[in-house]
Design a protein around this nucleic acid. Structure first.
Length: 195
DNA sequence: TGCGAGATTACG
DNA sequence: GTAATCTCGCAA
């Protein structure tokens, strides 16, 4: 099976187009840890009150306003890292939050990173902060170029197509923009967040 | 089932 | 001060 990296054209569309296309792609992180993307959420800018980009650029969200195909990693709740894929074009806020993965390789390292709370494979990456912890993604990787894999993080297509009928639901954890159905996941995937 | 806390960031 | 793209442990 040949795997090919996603190119700039893939990421240069709007977040709502990129998000469902990311389902079933493979995220590759440092140390050979990889997982299949099974749940994502789209975020935009001035028209999306739930987005970090809603009120314009800040030091923290600068990557989200940058060129497509980069990794936007931010710290939240004083505790957790979350990883997003930047979409569209430089100057426009657009990103896709990676919410859950099915672990593929490097499971030993993932269990070590997640600690004793992870008892089963589906405890490793079934949430946005869980997957960053399991894969060793933190602020040092903010701004990574996924197209050139300049920091060993990239996304590849291993030949598995996105689901023909992805589940489309409301985004999780928002108070602003909570009415937008911009969450996409693989139907019946055991690794989606929230059991 | 509900609730508090926790390594930060941002706005009022 | 308070809310934020969250998770976990513990009380009830």
């Amino acid at each position: 099976m040949t795997s090919r990296k996603l190119d700039r054209d893939f990421y240069a569309r709007g977040a709502l187009e990129v998000a469902p296309e990311l389902l079933n792609k493979v995220l590759m992180a440092p140390d050979g840890r990889t997982g299949r993307i099974v749940e994502v959420e789209a975020y935009r800018g001035a028209d999306d009150p739930g987005s970090h980009g809603f009120r314009g650029p800040t030091r923290r969200n600068a990557t989200m306003f940058g060129p497509p195909g980069h990794l936007y990693v931010y710290f939240t709740y004083g505790m957790h890292w979350c990883a997003n894929v930047v979409a569209e074009t430089a100057g426009v806020a657009a990103a896709v939050l990676l919410r859950a993965l099915t672990p593929l390789d490097g499971l030993d390292a993932m269990y070590a990173a997640r600690g004793p709370v992870a008892r089963r494979d589906r405890d490793l990456c079934s949430g946005p902060a869980k997957l960053t912890q399991a894969l060793g993604i933190d602020g040092a990787l903010d701004g990574s170029n996924l197209i050139t894999a300049d920091r060993s993080v990239t996304i590849v297509d291993d030949g598995t197509p996105p689901p023909p009928d992805p589940a489309v639901t409301l985004r999780i954890g928002l108070t602003n923009g909570a009415d937008l159905p911009w969450r996409f996941h693989v139907p019946d995937a055991p690794d989606v967040s929230r059991r």
